[in-house]
């Protein structure tokens, strides 16, 4: 295949346009962020990105993103399992609704969650008498980030579960394995890479999330202020170099995550194709 000469036209045009457009829209603007930070000395940069209020925001952003992604790993796996394996009324609608967090604008999700979990909201009014406060607390950030990451685990695990062949499970059962043994020894090894991919995608998405969080979070410094909001506030104050410094820290972490996820998927594809 690869040694055969490719006769199709348009390679130079399509690749050239792809690289040009990518550079103009993505690469050059992103490089502006890295160039802008050179206006700060190393000491100034360090001071900005390790200021106590900023560090508190990293802890909240990464902690809440991690918890949200973990919640989604557990419930997303269960959701994928139920949607693939069982029949029940309303299943098709639930299946379609799983993508709602992709499709619903984040500002709409934000004001809706803030209203639902406020002291007078449908859920908040029920939780507050039990001493659970969600709005304007880190818990509110976790709720928003769980919502935003919900589709990822379901949509990465679902196709793998669908492709799983019944024969291996039947063989395990006929050899005397109980249901739990079949799941932990046969099913889980097949789906964990997809589960990990979905988890990482939900985590990566949550780190950068802004619109759905800021309304429910109440944005109290040191308590419920996420890092993207810190950048936004510094932008509003025209502290561009400082805003960019914090942005660069987030960009580097996000890019490392993206490369890890793409590496994971590349490895999975290779494993998938060589095993067949």
């Amino acid at each position: 295949m690869s040694t055969k000469k490719n006769i199709l036209p348009g390679f130079n045009l399509s690749l050239g346009y792809t690289i040009l457009y990518l550079s103009l829209i993505v690469l050059i603007p992103l490089s502006a962020a890295f160039i802008k930070t050179t206006e700060l000395s190393l000491n100034e940069f360090w001071e900005v990105v390790t200021a106590p209020r900023v560090v508190a925001s990293y802890k909240l952003t990464f902690g809440a993103s991690l918890i949200g992604a973990l919640i989604n790993a557990v419930f997303g796996l269960l959701t994928a399992w139920v949607l693939v394996r069982y029949k029940f009324p309303g299943k098709k609608i639930l299946d379609a609704l799983v993508d709602l967090p992709f499709a619903l604008p984040t500002a709409v999700a934000g004001i809706t969650l803030a209203t639902l979990y406020s002291a007078h909201g449908w859920i908040g009014a029920w939780l507050e008498p039990h001493g659970i406060k969600v709005a304007s607390t880190p818990l509110g950030v976790i709720v928003a980030l769980t919502f935003i990451g919900l589709p990822f685990v379901v949509r990465t695990v679902q196709p793998v579960l669908e492709d799983l062949e019944a024969e291996t499970e039947e063989a395990a059962a006929s050899l005397g394995a109980n249901r739990w043994q079949t799941f932990s020894k046969i099913v889980f090894p097949a789906i964990w890479p997809a589960l990990l991919t979905g988890f990482s995608l939900a985590f990566a998405r949550a780190i950068g999330e802004y619109g759905s969080v800021i309304f429910i979070a109440g944005n109290i410094p040191f308590v419920s202020e996420i890092t993207p909001l810190i950048i936004y506030i510094k932008l509003d104050e025209h502290e561009y170099a400082q805003a960019t410094a914090v942005a660069v820290v987030m960009l580097v972490i996000s890019f490392l995550l993206l490369f890890a996820i793409n590496g994971l998927q590349w490895w999975l594809n290779r494993r998938h194709t060589t095993s067949h």
Binding site: G208, E209, L229, A247, M250, L251, S254, F255
Partner: peptide, 9 residues
């Protein structure tokens, strides 16, 4: 890349 970039950034 744009998937990994926070909207604010």
């Amino acid at each position: 890349l744009p998937f990994a970039v926070s909207p604010v950034i």
